Simulated scan of single mutants.
Amino acid sequence: MDTGRRQYAHARAQLPPETLSKLYHRDRLTLRQIAGQVGVSRQTVSRLLADYEISTIPATQRTKIHVDRDWLYQEYVTNRRALPDLARQLGMSTPNLARWATKYEIPMRPRGGPSHSSALAAAASAEAVPPILRTAAAAQGGRDRLARAEAASTFPTLTEAARALGTSQATLTSQFLRLERETGGALFERAERNRPMKLTTHGRRVIAAVRQLNPSD
């Protein structure tokens, strides 16, 4: 099977019609953001939309990506993540994200900065965490994502959680999709009519492990 077919098969497995429609229409993620979350090309996701007969959103109606300053500072400065990695997560180009950093007066690191040592330190500290969290905790920024998932679990909707955490719904969705890949299962059942968002069985295990890792005083 060639690369294109493998990507398409992988995308179909990760993005059934209902999931893709929710991410694209309800959560307003771009095709590039969705593609980045499942590790395929934007063209593959576009092909899925067509095959599922999901209507596309005209560019004039697409909400522009807003980058939260606190999130960018935390991930880029505190967690020492590389700008291209962050740009891929947000579904935008590296130069575009660099312009956001400049706008927020966040100092830019020289290319090839010391992100590798930060990654090694994160990996080492992950050995002390529960196995279900180990992959997530080893990733740069992983502990912050886990903390946000624990905090979000107390809210009835992702929109309210994002508002309370001072970030956008798209950013929170992107982070939770990554956590789901890192922990091996869906974390939340999304809010529907007359039913609040709630944790899945897997999500309850993850959040219990997070609370075990960071017990309340």
Results as ranks from 00 to 15, higher is better:
Q33L: 01
A35F: 06
A35S: 12
Q37P: 00
G39N: 05
V40K: 12
V40A: 07
S41N: 09
R42C: 07
R42T: 15
R42P: 09
V45N: 05
S46Y: 08
R47A: 14
L48N: 04
L48E: 07
A50V: 08
Y52T: 08
E53M: 09
E53I: 00
S55Q: 11
S55T: 09
S55W: 05
S55R: 11
I57T: 13
P58H: 08
A59W: 01
Q61C: 10
K64H: 12
I65E: 07
I65R: 06
I65C: 01
I65Q: 07
H66R: 13
H66T: 14
D68I: 05
R69G: 06
R69K: 04
D70Q: 15
D70I: 11
W71H: 11
W71Q: 11
L72C: 04
Q74D: 14
Q74Y: 03
Q74K: 08
E75W: 06
T78A: 11
T78W: 04
R80N: 09
R80G: 01
A82C: 02
L83N: 00
P84I: 03
D85E: 04
L86H: 08
L86P: 09
Q89S: 14
Q89K: 08
L90P: 00
T94R: 01
A98L: 02
R99C: 10
W100S: 13
A101Y: 02
A101H: 05
T102S: 14
K103H: 15
K103N: 13
E105K: 08
I106G: 03
M108T: 06
M108E: 03
R109F: 04
R109N: 04
R109H: 12
P110A: 05
G112R: 06
H116R: 13
S118V: 01
S118A: 15
S118M: 03
S118P: 00
A119P: 02
L120G: 12
L120I: 10
A121T: 14
S125L: 11
A126S: 15
A126L: 12
A126M: 07
A126N: 06
R134I: 06
R134N: 07
R134W: 05
T135A: 14
A137K: 00
A138E: 10
A138W: 08
A138V: 05
A138C: 09
Q140W: 03
G142P: 07
R143G: 13
D144I: 11
D144F: 13
